[in-house]
């Protein structure tokens, strides 16, 4: 086994974004098998972090920095992976578009959810804060996501989650995506009221919810 895979794994576990990029660039430059780099390096690393999280040994900075390092390294490899280079194919556990709804600029909870989903093997497309319904849907369409996850921290912006579901209805796209919501003032009842496919109170529960929805 190429020793670089072990180095990549360690870079992810250490949450070292710069090193993850550097190693990914070496994979491309030295024409090392990118699929193996992903499976034996990046995924191995994030799985290790995920396991430490589940057992309570890792804390949020550990998981979030690992997820950032993973994303940064994977971005470097994206082109060669898309070109079909390497033995076999790399497949994520599902694509999820994640963002904070229109009118709301809070993003910490959303970022935590993104990191935990990444560490659980999902491919997360984070579109950022203050995003309109059409922005969520455009991104989901572009990347072929199955789940749209919308966050809101304010009682005054929760209604934007409802707007998102209504927009999908109006565009006849409701069946194409699973919509999940979360954020401080939201609740299971609110999720039901607006016709979302799921609600989670914590980031861990959001991961479980996505696993359930993508079965």
């Amino acid at each position: 086994m190429n020793p670089i895979f072990e180095e990549i794994k360690d870079a992810i576990v250490d949450g070292d974004e710069d090193l993850a990029i550097e190693l990914a660039e070496r994979v491309v430059a030295e024409k090392i098998d990118p699929v193996q780099a992903v499976q034996l390096g990046f995924i191995k690393g994030i799985e290790e972090v995920g396991a430490a999280w589940t057992s309570g040994e890792a804390f949020l900075p550990d998981v979030m920095m690992a997820a950032d390092a993973m994303k940064a390294g994977m971005d470097v490899l994206e082109e060669v992976l898309a070109a079909g280079e390497g033995e076999g194919a790399y497949e994520d556990k599902g694509k999820i578009v994640l963002g904070t709804v229109e009118g709301d600029i809070h993003d910490i909870g959303k970022n935590i959810v993104g990191a935990l989903l990444t560490s659980a093997g999902f491919k997360v497309y984070d579109i950022g804060i203050d995003q309109k319904a059409e922005d969520f849907v455009a991104k989901a369409d572009e990347v072929g996501a199955k789940i749209i996850a919308a966050s809101s921290l304010l009682t005054t912006t929760m209604k934007s989650q409802k707007v998102l579901v209504e927009y999908l209805d109006a565009q006849n796209l409701r069946d194409k995506y699973k919509v999940i919501i979360g954020g401080g003032p939201t609740s299971a009842k609110w999720g039901e009221d607006i016709g979302a496919d799921g609600w989670a109170e914590t980031a861990d529960e959001a991961v479980d919810l996505c696993k359930k929805l993508l079965v």
């Binding site: 949020l60 909870g109 935590i112 861990d204």
Partner: peptide
Amino acid sequence: VTDMSTGS
């Protein structure tokens, strides 16, 4: 403070 296990 932030609870570093949940982000709450």
